[in-house]
Design a protein around this nucleic acid. Structure first.
Lengths: 190, 190
DNA sequence: AGAATCTTTCAATCCTTTCTGAAACTACCC
DNA sequence: GGGTAGTTTCAGAAAGGATTGAAAGATTCT
């Protein structure tokens, strides 16, 4: 077996593994595979390259590439004297994950927070209305409001942290994280 | 409309919203809804309560409750003089999310890291085999190895950070996070 | 031991998401 | 303008997950 074949095999394995992770970061398997392919080869590929290597239809390849563009984790590229569009993946892992976090905050946390605010408004007035002969109801309202408030607080914090990570200042966090994790047991060294 | 009805409505809305988030943290919609119900009411409920309130089958309720137990975000409870099992949700949001992070690290990141190590082993020897008349192949192998290494490093860091968050020491991180996010612009106050 | 009560399992069904492939569309060239 | 190369769209097909419900399995009580 040539090394070339072995390389292809390793790439395929990486693509498969990345594809399985797809669910974990909220995209379809194919989309993750396309990204894996572009990332691991490191070179710009066109739609046909992707179709052939992953054995998927043109429509699927086109949709996945467009979705990846939307997520801003791949970008268009062109070769001189070639009309085709090529695509190449963001090569820095931290930049990649910053983009993913940015997307997921916008798509998931922001709407969630909006809904939580709405729900808070729904019961903000309830407590007053609960007549004093109904202690039980009053207590349930209090519990509800308190749970809702905790949840809101948590996601606000989460969003703030994410904002820090995403912003240019995020590089600082990134550096700190790397440092922290590299010497987790050496803090007390002389 | 009574406040009681309004409370129920607000709870239903919360349950629905939480259910939509299900995908985001890797569980089924129903499982998220069951958790939302237990969390927002704050009181222990039995299987039949859940079935009735969410209009789901016994099997589904049973499975979802068991899964939530596996995730360690709800626990069994019993009422004296009642044979039924009741369930109540972890009430502290930070503890809840620590449990979720713990699960997802074990289920997703650990296996991923294991696979990445395997893949690294697959090509660790390749470079030597690439004959010197094949510069192109050699370069592709180098790129591959470098990408793989970056990915590995990133997930190692991620796992370390998660470990800190999860551990008892995580409370420190939590406090820091809350502080950070509460006064992101007041750092320089006297 | 048997009855009563509650829980779990799993094959069949339903539903949602993803994928395909061919047609429509766009941009460029002669 | 007509032809060609490349890209996007979308209705229908397929795959993958989630849900049901009824039967089997536990557990506790008398």
């Amino acid at each position: 077996m040539t090394s070339a074949a072995q390389l292809t095999q390793a790439q395929d394995r990486f693509i498969a593994v990345w594809g399985q992770m797809a669910g974990a970061w909220g995209v379809s398997r194919t989309m993750a595979e396309v990204h894996a392919l572009l990332y691991i080869t490191g070179e710009p590929l066109c739609t046909d390259d992707v179709m052939e290597r992953l054995q998927i239809s043109r429509g699927n390849a086109s949709m996945s590439l467009r979705a990846l563009l939307d997520w801003a984790i791949i970008e268009r590229a062109h070769k001189r004297g070639d009309r085709k569009e090529y695509f190449h993946a963001e090569q820095d892992v931290w930049t990649l994950f910053r983009a993913i976090v940015r997307q997921r905050i916008t798509r998931e946390v922001d709407p969630l927070l909006a809904s939580l605010y709405e729900i808070r408004d729904m019961t903000a007035i309830d407590r007053k209305r609960a007549r004093s002969d109904n202690e039980d109801l009053r207590e349930r309202i209090d519990i509800h409001n308190q749970r809702l408030e905790s949840m809101l607080e948590f996601f606000q914090t989460l969003e703030q942290l994410a904002a820090m990570f995403i912003s240019p200042a995020g590089k600082g966090l990134q550096a700190a994280a790397t440092l922290l994790s590299k010497s987790p047991r050496e803090e007390a060294a002389p």
